[in-house]
Design a protein around this nucleic acid. Structure first.
Lengths: 340, 340
DNA sequence: TTATTTACCGGAAACGTTTCCGAAAATTGT
DNA sequence: ACAATTTTCGGAAACGTTTCCGGTAAATAA
């Protein structure tokens, strides 16, 4: 039971290889009857064109590569769903890889994808300044790329972004309006624009409302980062009145430690997270968080990429900002309704 | 700036194509000095062997395909992490695809992967009885496959499984031991062995302890399924004393509705979930759940697959069961310590 | 010294397609 | 009926590798 190729099919039908190829590619210069005949016989014999041979000669694959740092939080999966929806519709298959927050793996992943002649890439970086030049060279090679959320500066590529500055400002403003005075920010991973933007938004909110600048503490994006920092704050006797965390995981980690140590949320410490996680509305108390339009991000990125593939060569990079929402929940509400 | 091929490299070095190939494949019949020379020059010129051409002739890719129903719950991502870890170590790249609970997409995904000559497949099915024969034919074609968690009967393939029957029994037993009398099971998606196994475990627990068989209600795996069924129970005035749910999502959906309607958990209704989610320990009250060894599942599947690839042709399918853990939390504890 | 083995390398076929070019067959116009 | 198109098809080159087969030069054995 050998693998059946285009040659076999051609031979059994007494037509040329080219004709079979024409049938499968729906070319104009083939008689409809012979096309149908060929397709039917192919079905019968179980012939499927070998996409590798096709890729080799066409230098394209109808595959799109997606690389994200992780799949554990629901953020990236949800973005992926959005992208996949659009791409499947247009006949593309989606190959996904996770870099596990390592930019070596990230680069390796992107390289395999490129070597395998994906028609385009959708990427969210683990870190911005490490392989900046690598991505520049990819773009020079005319490979369509769109970045989302975690992107690099000064690069002529399309991007779909979330206005971290604005929403960090809103989130912080919310805390200020609730009357909290001593607010600290748990800062995300270094080397990411979004980290800096959230810091800036946090600061801007303080300036805007003319209150004393809140402290900024390096933390990270994972639950255990939040736990570690919370413990530090307790040990150093520096527990603030409110916390704006880099994301939900970190916020939740901190919350757990505080709760364990007898602090009440929000009465002792108010909390706000970022990038609405599944947990936010279920945890106790429910966590105020900034929600990103995950599905929309994926869809927009996919559309941008398709557009870029269509107009290869003559496209202009676009940067699209999408809107979010601040979901106010119990963790940040000041029940006393006065400054504390 | 054209794409540089093996020919170009050969020409600039005045060696034959074969020699360059030998250098990259680390063959025995090449002088070490020339190998180093070639490799160095390749680095310099930025030459990378085209894996597509290589695949075409070798009929293999050093890629492994993984297909799972979804990435939203953390279960599959965690399994993937485990598998990826092992496979990367052995020089394989991992291509992941999600079927989004549609077996048409699942089949399409598997087909692309196979067409692209992946060396093996790791699969968790969306449904068991739909494309059984399709997977049979793949195995007949000698394509290494290992299934995990959601698998098909009567198929000569390796599988890594979780003993759903046993752990459903344990979970139900736990509820019985806490003294709850009227327990119902929210049953998962149809067409899955694991669903039936969990049902059987639930029933067996009742038999074993000689208590009146608990009711079984078709539900599903998603939060909204749990919400829907909980609402039904309330409307029909059939709220049970305890619930063993098909999984955490469904359990949490039900919990929310019950809480909203003024029921207290566990004092009015006790709850147990399945497949420990991120939420379980953070939700209020924290949810008792059966934890699966996610990472271990992925690693075991990967190792099984590698073994099968190595001994292609002469392997015997193995079925490995991995152990879990029942995490007892607030949602199921009977504070009254008597039968209710 | 010559014969034999070993180390290293080049040529060419092969993998399974697509696509260009030209030619035969069918259709149209005169 | 014949020329001019148009439709349909076949042949062959190309994509970028790997691998088999053979050949030369160096190394070893006799």
């Amino acid at each position: 039971m050998k693998h059946i190729t285009i040659k076999d099919l051609a031979k059994t039908l007494n037509v040329s290889i080219s004709t079979v190829s024409r049938a499968f590619n729906n070319k104009y210069d083939i008689k409809p009857e012979t096309r149908d005949l060929i397709l039917q016989k192919a079905e019968e014999l179980g012939y499927r064109p070998n996409p590798i041979a096709r890729k080799l000669i066409q230098q394209r694959s109808f595959n799109i590569g997606v690389v994200v740092p992780e799949f554990e939080n629901s953020f990236f999966p949800k973005v992926l769903m959005g992208a996949q929806e659009i791409l499947h519709d247009k006949g593309y298959q989606v190959l996904m890889m996770q870099s596990n927050y390592s930019w070596e793996i990230e680069k390796k992943n992107v390289e395999t994808l490129v070597d395998n002649k994906v028609d385009g890439l959708i990427i969210s970086l683990t870190s911005e300044n490490k392989n900046n030049s690598y991505y520049k060279s990819l773009i020079d090679q005319n490979i369509p790329i769109v970045f989302f959320n975690r992107t690099v500066d000064d690069i002529p590529a399309s991007q779909v972004l979330f206005d971290d500055f604005k929403w960090a400002l809103f989130a912080t403003e919310h805390l200020i309006m609730q009357g909290y005075q001593n607010i600290v920010h748990l800062k995300g991973s270094e080397n990411l624009n979004l980290t800096q933007n959230r810091v800036s938004g946090f600061q801007q909110a303080h300036r805007k409302h003319r209150v004393k600048p809140g402290k900024i503490i390096p933390c990270g994006f994972r639950t255990k980062d939040g736990e570690r920092v919370a413990q530090q704050l307790i040990d150093n006797n520096e527990v603030p009145r409110a916390i704006f965390a880099a994301n939900d995981s970190c916020a939740i980690g901190a919350m757990n430690i505080f709760k364990q140590s007898g602090y009440h949320i929000p009465n002792d410490i108010a909390m706000v997270g970022f990038t609405e996680s599944n947990l936010a509305k279920h945890i106790h108390p429910s966590l105020t968080s900034v929600e990103q339009p995950t599905k929309d991000i994926g869809q927009t990125a996919a559309n941008l990429l398709l557009e870029q593939i269509a107009n290869k060569g003559i496209f202009v990079p676009q940067t699209i900002f999408l809107n979010g929402r601040l979901n106010v929940r119990d963790s940040s509400i000041n029940h006393l309704q006065k400054n504390v």
